[in-house]
Design a protein around this nucleic acid. Structure first.
Lengths: 174, 174
DNA sequence: TCCGTTATTTGCCGTATGACAAATATATAG
DNA sequence: CTATATATTTGTCATACGGCAAATAACGGA
């Protein structure tokens, strides 16, 4: 069991062990992302990103949604037109500031998101159930260490830490 | 260290440990997928999928590319028009069957794909370098077990096993 | 109240994608 | 050689996105 210290050349010429990790990680990413394909016929990628963003914030106004999607408000407004027409999102007027919207998921929109998550959970569980218990333990430990390291890097850069890894990952695969 | 046997209820009510794995996996997926965002301005999602599919097959004809993208040939043809205009893909005539095309990446297209992969490698290495060595070892073991389990499930379903996890994962995040 | 600011919508335009049908070129069976 | 099948392109249409500018509505300060 090699125990070398952190090398100074980050990102270049990683130890052989690292590239193996990179290769093996693909299976996890593939299983994680496969659930999205089943919904490809229902909503587009951008629409799903919007749904996930709204769900994550519970409620959000148009400007923040646009910012989260990296778009201008007018584009987001049109996107919401389509999502509203599809019965997935509801626009309601904000009480405190009547200029703003309060975007929220309809029951239909919420169940779409939940189905996606359940699908992913089932896909992952299917693979986990095939793993030897020791493998699951190792995976858990390894992923916790990875998430911890990613968090510390994230904090160091920290611009707007309002997003956690789960929501970032969810939207990336939208 | 729990060592329970594989439960019969696959996909439902997973052991607590499993849902922890699911939560922690998000960080890995997020880091893996982040590299794609840097290329969002250069090529669209579909275009990147096409580039990755061509690169994976080294050379491919239009019909197979269309099938891999889940589109009809005419859509794929238009897609190739744009990729060719962008200097990323080359159309050449097939020798054996002059009806077919031979699609391949131009040097420019190949370097775009390679940049993406290097970016991902660097992002992963950055996090891996922050992990305690024991965590890296655990991650490696766990991912290997996961990939093995995923492979065995894949083989059992096996329709067209021409894709490995790496390429599936790559295209999912395109 | 009047004015500048902010949030959202709408009009307009352009590109990307996606499908279907028809045309073209080539291969292959008979 | 002819008829049919296959691979690709092109014409045409529809939809989704994306941005800019202008319009609308509401907030907030002077």
């Amino acid at each position: 069991m090699k125990d070398e210290p952190v090398p100074p050349f980050i990102g270049h010429l990683p130890p052989t062990e690292w590239s193996v990790i990179e290769r093996e990680a693909a299976a996890l990413v593939a299983v994680w992302g496969r659930s999205r394909q089943a919904f490809a016929t229902k909503v587009s990628s951008v629409q799903l990103q919007a749904l996930l963003t709204i769900e994550q914030h519970e409620t959000i106004n148009l400007g923040r949604l646009a910012a989260a999607l990296g778009a201008v408000p007018s584009s987001a407004s049109r996107l919401c037109d389509r999502l509203e027409a599809a019965g997935l999102v509801r626009r309601s007027h904000c009480e405190e500031d009547k200029r703003e919207l309060t975007l929220s998921l309809t029951p239909s929109g919420r169940s779409l998101v939940e189905e996606l998550q359940q699908r992913r959970r089932a896909d992952l569980a299917r693979v986990l159930s095939e793993m030897p218990p020791a493998g699951r333990i190792a995976l858990l430990r390894g992923l916790q260490a990875f998430a911890g390291a990613a968090d510390s890097i994230m904090e160091r850069q920290a611009e707007e830490p309002e997003d956690d890894w789960t929501s970032i990952a969810a939207r990336l695969l939208a």
